[in-house]
């Protein structure tokens, strides 16, 4: 190529993010997808077939032909998996609603605070990210366990006579998920509320709305893109959450992240685990696509 290099360079620069996506998202996806079509085997790696060129073209063709959707049928056939999916969706949905109920007033209060305090509040929201997620969840174990900080506190105040059993219950999972993902709810809500022109609320009041009515007629509808973004950012990772149910949940807690982990590391059934993972992805693609649509629409009407 004897063309002057700037255009080549700029084309390369444009391609870098695509290559990045290809390498880090698409390639692993296809590897997992391929494993999900394989069968378990006592081998290294623990599934067949493996694709290799050692047996030539024939071998490759045989390997391809032996791929099947059996694992998916297996997952659908076993009520345990279906239950785990549904239960995960329930945990994620309720956690999202709770995070919204807590996060909205928080974000709203932050935007109404004096300007110099807002940055401090924002820092406080982001601050937990400075320590490891795992350690923070362990800290919740210390807080919630029967002889933990919360029970000691309540007992010493005489509010309760018996320690509350929170750890290893569903309640602990909700606390853990809401705590972990609250910043992802607060930040988009804050961004949406912050950029809103306060004179809109004043206009609504001028036209006869009480402050509460003005909130529901103007502030809330205009913050919906933030509500949606926050909800997605909480809901999507919460569905596949593993650490929180593992550390805070009980043995009977059914969440797909836990099932997935057990399938990989306890049963060493990589193909079924992969199928579970791929199905999880498909379940989550729907809300993501919907979210993208709404976002694009919101951007359109902002101009």
């Amino acid at each position: 190529m004897s063309r002057p290099s700037p255009s080549l360079l700029s084309r390369v620069v444009i391609w870098v993010p695509y290559l990045w996506l290809l390498a880090l998202f698409l390639a692993p996806f296809f590897i997992v997808f391929k494993i999900s079509l394989s069968q378990t085997a006592i081998a290294m790696p623990p599934y067949t077939p493996t694709f290799g060129l050692s047996e030539g073209w024939e071998g490759l063709k045989n390997a391809f032909n032996s791929l099947s959707f059996d694992n998916y049928l297996w997952v659908f056939g076993d009520p345990l998996y279906v239950k785990a999916y549904l239960s995960s969706l329930k945990f994620a949905a309720i956690s999202t609603v709770l995070a919204l109920l807590i996060g909205y007033p928080l974000a709203y209060g932050m935007t109404r605070a004096p300007e110099n305090l807002r940055t401090i509040f924002l820092m406080m929201v982001i601050l937990p990210f400075w320590t490891s997620f795992l350690i923070r969840i362990y800290a919740w174990v210390a807080i919630l366990k029967p002889e933990g900080l919360l029970n000691q506190f309540l007992l010493s105040l005489g509010i309760i006579k018996q320690p509350l059993i929170i750890l290893n219950t569903d309640l602990a999972i909700y606390i853990g998920i809401v705590y972990s993902y609250l910043p992802f709810m607060v930040l988009p809500l804050y961004a949406a509320l912050e950029k809103m022109d306060h004179s809109l609320v004043e206009a609504a009041q001028d036209l006869g709305c009480t402050p509460i009515k003005a909130f529901w007629k103007v502030t809330f509808p205009l913050s919906l893109p933030g509500v949606l973004a926050g909800s997605m950012l909480v809901f999507i990772p919460a569905v596949g959450e593993f650490v929180v149910p593992d550390l805070l949940g009980g043995s009977s807690t059914l969440m797909i992240g836990k099932t997935l982990w057990a399938e990989f590391f306890v049963n060493r059934d990589w193909p079924v685990a992969s199928a579970v993972a791929i199905l999880l992805l498909l379940i989550l693609v729907l809300p993501i696509v919907y979210f993208q649509r709404v976002q694009a629409k919101a951007r359109e009407s902002e101009v």
Binding site: D197, E202, A203, Q205, L222, S301
Partner: peptide, 20 residues
Amino acid sequence: VPPYRRPVNMMFQSYALFPH
């Protein structure tokens, strides 16, 4: 007397039209 009970209406400098 709060704004919503005053027989007065204001046209705001930024117009403050409801975008939605």
